[in-house]
Amino acid sequence: MKISLPELKKQVHQMPMDVRWGDMDAMGHVNNAVYFRYMESVRIAWMTAVGAVPQPQGEGPVIANAFCSFLRQIEYPARLLLTLYVSDPGRTTFETWTTIEREDQPGVVFAEGGATVIWVDFPRQKAATLPQWMRDIVAG
């Protein structure tokens, strides 16, 4: 099943990543759980770049859910291009979307997925209002 990225998504980050030998499973392709690590890597790189780093005694982002559609198998060796999009800033959340391509096959999406990010007050263990600076970044 192919998901559709929302029309109002905003591309915010892109990064290359090498498939490691250990990313493969017994069937000789990248293990399905590893795709979530790839999506996490691009999401964390972007969040770090914009200053959205969790502060254990304060507030920060947490993933509320994550999903992935596996469209084509990826095998080692490969160099990937991960593209991150954001959309739909709400009171406490926003959406992230990721596409995974091989650099040697531009425009061919091998997997796509996303995650809902919720802003959390860590000491209280409760959702917090998405800061205006983050809302501005996501809304663009």
Rank of each mutant, 00 (worst) to 15 (best):
Y85T: 04
G51P: 06
V86K: 00
R135P: 07
W46P: 00
L80Y: 03
E95R: 02
R79Y: 11
V50S: 09
G28Y: 07
F122C: 03
A45E: 14
A78Y: 08
G114K: 00
P16Q: 13
A33G: 13
R37C: 10
W46A: 01
V109W: 01
G51S: 09
T129K: 12
S87A: 14
G28A: 08
M17Q: 11
Y76K: 06
D88P: 01
D121M: 08
S69F: 04
Y35D: 02
A26T: 11
R72K: 15
L84D: 02
E112G: 02
G51I: 07
Y35F: 15
A139C: 11
A49T: 12
P54E: 09
R135C: 11
V62G: 04
M134G: 04
A33H: 10
T116I: 06
P89Y: 05
R43K: 12
S87F: 02
E75T: 11
Y85H: 10
P56Y: 15
A45W: 05
P56E: 14
T98R: 01
L84Y: 05
G107F: 10
D121T: 07
V50R: 09
R124A: 14
Q73V: 11
L81I: 11
F70C: 03
G90F: 03
Y35S: 03
T116F: 00
P123E: 10
F94S: 00
D136N: 13
A115L: 01
M17G: 08
E75G: 10
I137A: 09
Q132T: 15
L80R: 00
P123S: 09
F70S: 01
I63R: 00
I63M: 04
Q11P: 12
K10N: 11
A66K: 01
E101N: 07
R135M: 11
G28F: 07
M27D: 13
A139I: 08
I137F: 06
P16H: 10
S41Y: 02
T129E: 14
I118Q: 03
L80M: 08
F36Y: 15
I118E: 02
T83I: 11
W46T: 00
Q105G: 08
G60K: 01
V109I: 12
N32H: 14
A111E: 03
G51Y: 08
P61N: 07
I44K: 01
L81E: 09
T99H: 05
Y85P: 03
M17P: 05
A49S: 15
G113K: 01
Q14V: 14
A111P: 09
R91D: 12
P131D: 08
V30C: 04
P77N: 08
V138R: 01
F94V: 02
H29M: 06
Q11D: 10
V19G: 04
G28V: 06
Q55Y: 09
G113C: 06
